[in-house]
Design a protein around this nucleic acid. Structure first.
Length: 261
DNA sequence: ATGCCTTAATGTTTAAGA
């Protein structure tokens, strides 16, 4: 099973790049963030033609998430339970015996301390959601744009100041708290060290200088982690014409031994 | 100079992104 997450920075601007990528990679699931459109503006027909059905939670101008799925699925939530802000930053589906949460965590650099508090509040609710799944023995993946560089190795030297919301100690602690629940960072489980950036700023020649960040992550519940086969950021996508500033993070899982036994 | 791009919309500028 092949699952990807990608902050596309406007699905309408990126539609053809996304369709080309789907054609090449053929994932079973693609979780997209920052679709930047209302639900009824989402180009669902084009993705349908490519073989994908969509779970869409859009809003005007900003944010917005959508999950593309091959095969049957059901939407289990169109918002993050416990996060009481009317923003389109979470959609959750169930397919192939997995619950897949697609998240766009607040950046936390705008809106002063209140804006930063919103980021931590989202983390709290996401942690509670994960605990709920663990308690109910639900296999799950929580993937998306976490807007956190978990360790210094995940932030190119000089790319961000020490007070940036992506690297503040509380942000990193909030991310670690999810790992401490027993979740697995798919990329780091297979590639424990080294750079594995998923984002390069449009500004200041960040891409040619390889001044990137690892901020897009896939966290796996214990039984799903047992099936982890590969995890890689599709860096080549950043070099194409008019790309998103993020690249897809791709995770593949071996077949469920329980299902095939 | 929290700028250097890029996006959407409030649109001949602004806010947000990270």
């Amino acid at each position: 099973m092949k699952i990807a997450t990608w902050n596309v920075n406007s699905v309408r601007q990126r539609q053809h790049l996304i369709l080309d990528w789907l054609e090449r990679q053929q994932p079973d699931v693609l979780m997209m963030q920052e679709i930047k459109c209302e639900t009824d503006q989402f180009p669902a027909d084009a993705f349908k033609e490519a073989g994908y059905d969509c779970a869409i939670v859009g809003q005007k101008s900003y944010n917005g998430v959508a999950t593309l799925v091959k095969g049957g699925f059901e939407v289990t939530s169109d918002h993050l339970p416990g996060f009481d802000h009317p923003v389109a930053r979470y959609v959750e589906i169930r397919t192939q015996k997995l619950t897949l949460g697609n998240l766009y965590l607040p950046n936390g650099n705008s809106g002063g301390e209140e804006g930063y508090a919103t980021k931590l509040a989202f983390f709290d609710a996401l942690t509670a959601r994960a605990q709920q799944f663990l308690q109910t023995d639900t296999d799950f993946i929580l993937a998306g744009d976490y807007n956190v560089c978990p360790t210094p190795e995940d932030c190119a030297p000089g790319a961000l100041g020490p007070d940036d919301a992506l690297v503040r100690p509380q942000s990193r602690a909030a991310y670690r708290r999810m790992l401490w629940l027993g979740l697995t960072d798919a990329l780091r489980a297979l590639h424990p060290s080294g750079t594995a950036y998923t984002f390069w700023d449009y500004q200041a020649g960040a891409w040619p200088r390889d001044s990137g960040l690892r901020i897009d992550h896939a966290l796996l519940s214990p039984r799903v982690a047992e099936r982890l086969e590969t995890a890689w950021p599709d860096k080549a996508e950043r070099a194409l014409e008019r790309p998103s500033d993020h690249v897809p993070l791709v995770v593949t899982l071996r077949d469920d031994a329980q299902a095939t036994a």
